[in-house]
């Protein structure tokens, strides 16, 4: 203990007074500069709405005040340590503010783009009755609103990440709309394709030209593959095969070069009348206004079919009887 004290007194005796004065001056310069930087940082942080930068800057100010007090109390070593921490805090506040401003700017333009894209996709999803996509878009919007709340809270980093969540959901909805469609919708598409092909078969009659018959047979094979694909969880391939089936059926009809046969329309009228007779009772029992309305519209189309046939317009008659069958389908669905 004694030797340590002797060494210390020896060291102090060898320190020239100028060196100590130099240390004090350096410390004062350091503190003055920190003061300047604090003022500068205050302007910068004031630009942002970021709470973290403000908190850190407040801490920096407190540390600086403490270093000034320690200096005034004649405790330069402690003062120097605290002053260094104050300086680090200033830079951390500046860093946070720069980062926050960057995120603020980006959140603004991304939010605007999100709104546009969301609106477009929502229209698409509603028009195509893709409920799954509508749901995803609803979730995306809810995330975007949370992002907005974080933005208003002066936390643009969190807002940015939350907006990223919303964009991810938007991308999923978009992929769903582009590539999948809902399973129900695909089922409906395949059913419509089958109806179209049945109508084509009726139009071609019992003895079609061999080439047309071959095309139609291939169309039915394609539709069968589409069903298999859907069952195997391959909706994109299912949709492609259904497209091909429709195309082949259309080619068969075009190649036949025949106007829709009156006989074919009559067969469909007969089929409609049978279906309609079976359905009438069920609709009455269900007391469903929408179903009744759809059924009445189906009968109106049936009536127009007869009128068109009387005027010798077989193409118009075929359109009317197709519409009649579709309205009957709708009515049946509504009471199911």
């Amino acid at each position: 203990m004694l030797s340590v004290a002797m060494l210390l007194s020896l060291a102090i005796s060898f320190f020239p007074g100028g060196v100590l004065a130099q240390d004090a001056e350096d410390l004062q310069n350091y503190l003055d500069r920190t003061e300047e930087l604090l003022l500068w940082a205050r302007d910068l942080v004031g630009e942002t709405e970021n709470m973290r930068a403000r908190r850190v800057l407040k801490e920096a100010g407190d540390l600086h005040e403490r270093s000034l007090r320690l200096t005034a109390e004649g405790r330069p070593l402690l003062a120097r340590g605290v002053a260094r921490r104050a300086r680090s805090a200033v830079w951390l506040a500046v860093k946070s503010a720069r980062e926050a401003l960057n995120f603020e700017e980006r959140v603004r333009i991304r939010a605007e783009r999100f709104r546009d894209l969301h609106g477009q996709l929502l229209d698409r999803a509603r028009d195509s009755q893709n409920e799954r996509a509508v749901e995803l878009l609803g979730k995306a919007e809810s995330q975007a609103q949370r992002a907005r709340e974080h933005y208003l809270q002066g936390d643009p980093r969190l807002a940015f990440e939350q907006l990223n969540n919303a964009e991810q959901l938007l991308r999923s909805a978009r992929r769903l709309l582009d590539e999948g469609g809902s399973p129900d919708r695909l089922d409906q598409d395949l059913e419509r394709t089958r109806m179209l092909m049945e109508q084509t078969r009726e139009m071609l009659g019992d003895n079609p030209e061999p080439s047309c018959g071959q095309l139609l047979a291939e169309a039915f094979q394609a539709l069968e593959r589409a069903r298999e694909n859907l069952a195997q969880g391959q909706p994109v391939r299912a949709r492609q095969m259904a497209d091909m089936a429709r195309k082949l059926a259309r080619q068969a009809a075009e190649q036949s070069g025949l106007e829709p046969g009156i006989e074919s329309v009559r067969r469909q009228i007969e089929r409609f009348d049978n279906r309609s007779a079976l359905l009438e009772e069920r609709i009455r029992e269900a007391e469903s206004r929408p179903a009744t309305k759809a059924y009445q519209r189906a009968l109106e189309h049936r009536q127009r079919t007869s009128e068109s046939l009387d005027q010798g317009e077989s193409a118009a008659a075929l359109r009317q009887i197709r519409a009649a069958h579709q309205m009957l389908d709708q009515a049946e669905k509504l009471i199911r």
């Binding site: 410390l27 310069n29 350091y30 500069r33 920190t34 830079w91």
Partner: peptide, 13 residues
């Protein structure tokens, strides 16, 4: 402002 801190120049973040 000038760079006359104790370290000789400002340490920037």
């Amino acid at each position: 402002s000038d760079s006359t801190g104790a370290a000789g120049s400002d340490y920037v973040f």
